[in-house]
Design a protein around this nucleic acid. Structure first.
Length: 489
RNA sequence: CGGGGUGUAGCGCAGCCCGGUUAGCGCACCUGGUUUGGGACCAGGGGGUCGUGUGUUCGAAUCACACCACCCCGACCA
């Protein structure tokens, strides 16, 4: 078999790049830092969207859409927000081109915008400016809105899915009457993200709180889910922010409470992006290509016929038709790959590379014996089984694959997590990657020093598990509990 | 923006030092045939502003200068 893919052990970063390109997930566009998401990649994203959207609706949210453009002055209204995003904003300055004998077209200097427009790096400002008109009374609260959109952050260095100048995401923006409600919402959506990651992506995550230096620009508190990738680097997979009254104050969003008093509303925002595609790949895939958890696989089962003639192809199609029907009745996506321009061996390799969880192969031998060959992508195991009750067996197999992927990822994370008590040991252990649980004195200075000296950052202060006090590994000062350090994407 | 590198067919590359017929190879693509239980084989075929511009020269993919683009490493980050 031709070696299409750099091995993970040879060069993990190159493996990732190869895989994204060769599994037809995405490619670089001619626009610097921007990617084209190809149909196979987009289909997986659509499955993610669908699952998440259902979870948002189930927690009472509705979708809406706000503009791509944000007046420059809006961004400046919340001081730390603008500070956080100013360095990576694309700006629209003109609204017209005109033809030019030398250059074809040029920007029409006559068509300068009076106020420049920012391409949204996130939508808090335009949304809160809009909410001002929507919220008057406690009866208008809570306001629970999500939007699916693209955003632009002009990054210096980009990587397909993990960091691109333009990316797709969802951003939830909610308004509440009380601080407690807003905090509850922040945690509720964090739980939604964690559940999605674990149940759909088969990716175990740690829920935590960001330190001040890693906090979202404009938030009082940023919660996150962090995951450990196969190469030992951590990846932030989703964030949920408690925004306090910062945006309400910046945009004068007031409501009248039951006591007829004016109060600023309390806010949250939360998002996950196409970065999840990167997380999915970095968590599960192997040297043979992509591995997609069954619940997110656009095609869950593929049937590869081994036919020497058109008659045989027709016989195989008839042989498997009842199984296809039964699978579809269960809501399982299945395709008979009857393309006669490709050989079976080619198809085996291609579907494997693209991550299809289950493959059925059927040849003349199987039709004589009443069997099929069943292969699972996660373990690459093959077995010949009787065609009787095949749809049920496959349904169970898909669930088994989903479970196995989660368990494997969990085992990987557990093996890659260590508690460390001294800074010397930390410096040693961090070289091997993984998550490190260590005590920290809570100061930004210590955090910055560790980052400077080891390139490791505090991924989060974990929410779950007991918080046992100790002494900071760097300064020896008191620590309320261990935090998670790692080198991160 | 600093440091390094690369631009030759859709992709991956050779040719460049030392200028000289019609610019070559592998993969992919097209046609025909034989094949088909893990990326088949044989034969034939199509496809090129050699990144752009200027210069040197009888002659430039090859030499010089300028520019552009992209990639890798750093600073910034979901």
């Amino acid at each position: 078999m031709a070696e299409l893919l750099t091995k993970r052990s040879t060069d993990y970063a190159q493996w990732y790049n190869d895989l994204v390109l060769k599994a037809d997930l995405a490619e670089h566009s001619d626009v610097r830092g921007c990617m084209v998401i190809k149909p196979h990649g987009y289909a997986i994203w659509e499955r993610m969207q669908q699952a998440l959207d259902g979870m948002f609706k189930a927690t009472g949210h509705v979708n809406a859409y706000f503009p791509l453009f944000i007046p420059k002055s809006y961004l400046a209204k919340e001081a730390s927000h603008v500070e956080g995003f100013a360095k990576e904003c694309a700006v629209v300055t003109h609204y017209r081109l005109k033809s030019d004998p030398v250059h074809g077209v040029i920007v029409d200097p006559e068509a300068k915008l009076e106020e420049e427009l920012i391409i949204r790096p996130t939508s808090e400002t335009i949304i809160w400016n809009t909410y001002r008109g929507w919220i008057k009374s406690y009866r208008d609260l809570p306001l629970l809105i999500n939007q699916w959109a693209n955003v632009v952050r002009w990054e210096m260095r980009t990587r397909l899915f993990l960091r691109t100048a333009e990316f797709l995401w969802q951003e939830g923006h909610t308004a509440h009457a009380t601080k407690e409600e807003a905090l509850e919402e922040t945690r509720r959506m964090l739980d939604v993200y964690a559940r999605f990651a674990e149940e759909w992506m088969a990716m175990p995550v740690i829920k935590g709180v960001k330190t001040a230096s890693e906090r979202f620009a404009g938030a009082e508190e940023t919660y996150c889910i962090e995951a450990l990738m196969q190469d030992g680097k951590a990846l932030q997979a989703g964030t949920s922010h408690f925004l306090g009254q910062n945006f309400a104050k910046a945009f004068d969003v007031l409501f009248t409470n039951k006591e007829n008093k004016q109060e600023h509303v309390w806010a949250t925002s939360w998002g996950v992006s196409t970065r999840l595609m990167g997380a999915l790949i970095l968590t599960h895939s192997d040297d043979h290509g992509l591995i997609i958890p069954p619940k997110l696989a656009p095609l869950q089962v593929v049937v590869v016929p081994i036919a020497k003639s058109e008659e045989q192809m027709a016989a195989i199609a008839a042989y498997i038709e009842p199984v296809l029907k039964a699978l579809r009745a269960k809501g399982i996506t299945v395709k008979l790959d009857d393309d006669d321009t490709r050989k079976p061996g080619w198809k085996f390799a291609a579907h494997e590379f693209k991550g299809c969880p289950v493959r059925i192969a059927i040849g003349p031998r199987d039709m004589e014996n009443g069997t099929v060959e069943l292969a699972r992508r996660d373990t690459l195991e093959k077995q010949v089984i009787e065609v009787i009750d095949l749809a049920d067996k496959i349904e169970h197999l898909l669930q088994a694959i989903q479970d196995n992927l989660y368990q494997k990822a969990l085992a990987m994370r557990e093996a890659g997590t260590r508690a460390v008590d001294t800074y010397d040991e930390f410096k040693d252990v961090i070289e091997a990657g993984g998550l490190i649980l260590a005590h920290w004195d809570g100061t930004p200075e210590t955090e910055a020093r560790v980052k400077e000296e080891t390139k490791a950052t505090i991924r989060c202060i974990p929410l779950d598990g007991e918080r046992t006090p100790g002494r900071c590994m760097v300064t020896g000062k008191p620590s309320a509990g261990r935090v998670i350090f790692a080198r991160a994407y």
